[in-house]
Design a protein around this nucleic acid. Structure first.
Lengths: 156, 156
DNA sequence: GAGGTTACTGAGGCAACCTCATGATGAGGC
DNA sequence: GCCTCATCATGAGGTTGCCTCAGTAACCTC
């Protein structure tokens, strides 16, 4: 018996989550970005320049937390803050060239240990897992932390 | 589309994880325990008095982290530390009566929103999810954090 | 009883969230 | 023009759940 046989599905879920976090942190280390930063970067790539608040909506986190991720990305030169010409209170978060490069590098390296973890499943299983996870997300309802309208945005 | 359509299975996984964390924190609030504390308590119930180090093994976390969880549980009066009669360096973590009561109460209330989340799936889907999660755990290998440090030698 | 090992814990750190308060700014009333 | 209220981002500070590193006490072998 290595770990505990997790007693419930949620325990199981957490056990997998812990593994994933460890794995992806390690695999992303060469790039000096964390998983959540990469996630935000990807979202920015897909949705073009958006405000921190909107980004928060996309990521499903509090606006304040988006500020932090943007801080981290900006510090690494991966994004840039620009004043929104339509609203001087707001800023637009723009992906820089280095940011674009990094995102591409990570993607092409497909290096995420987390992905490799999932790659351990065969195609059918992975699809099934995806279906179940999506189902869970839908179940909890789209309207939980979606304070932001989240415009569809242009396809990146 | 509420949030972003998560781009990869890992993103999906994290999205579900975030929901779960939020949900279970809320549902456990009345008892003033956190999910990880409850998990540890459950493990202690199943495995009887064990040392912190052993608990860490069961939970798949570092020994030092087990100390913390035990601290929290002890502070709440849910467990008690006793000196291991066989080894005076070691302590045995023992579930107290209040701890037992709380575990029972939580279980019987079945109140975990996280569980309710999973309960949203029908029987077959839940079983399938469980199978897949277990598969993922096995894939990454039982011997990962089983006993001690696990120093994979991170790049950098 | 020296020397190495093991058990726990103090100190300190980090990631990724959170809430609440504050300072601009925008939008609308009068 | 001015006042008020909503909204945007952010500062300040907190929480959870992990981590490593170093130290101390106790155990174990020779």
């Amino acid at each position: 018996m290595e770990h505990d046989e997790p007693a419930s599905v949620s325990d199981l879920f957490w056990a997998v989550a812990r593994r994933m976090r460890r794995a992806s942190r390690e695999s992303l280390a060469p790039w000096e970005v964390t998983p959540s930063q990469l996630r935000a970067l990807g979202t920015l790539m897909r949705h073009g320049p958006v405000r921190p608040g909107t980004l928060a909506g996309h990521l499903g986190i509090a606006p304040r937390s988006a500020t932090e991720v943007v801080d981290a990305l900006e510090e690494r030169g991966l994004v840039r803050r620009e004043t929104d010409p339509d609203d001087r209170r707001a800023t637009l978060v723009v992906v820089t060239d280095p940011g674009r490069d990094l995102a591409a590098a990570v993607r092409s390296a497909r290096a995420s240990e987390a992905d490799r973890l999932f790659a351990g499943l065969d195609e059918a299983d992975r699809a099934e897992l995806e279906r179940l996870l999506r189902l869970l997300l839908d179940r909890t309802g789209p309207a939980e932390r979606t304070l932001m309208p989240v415009d569809p945005g242009p396809p990146g």
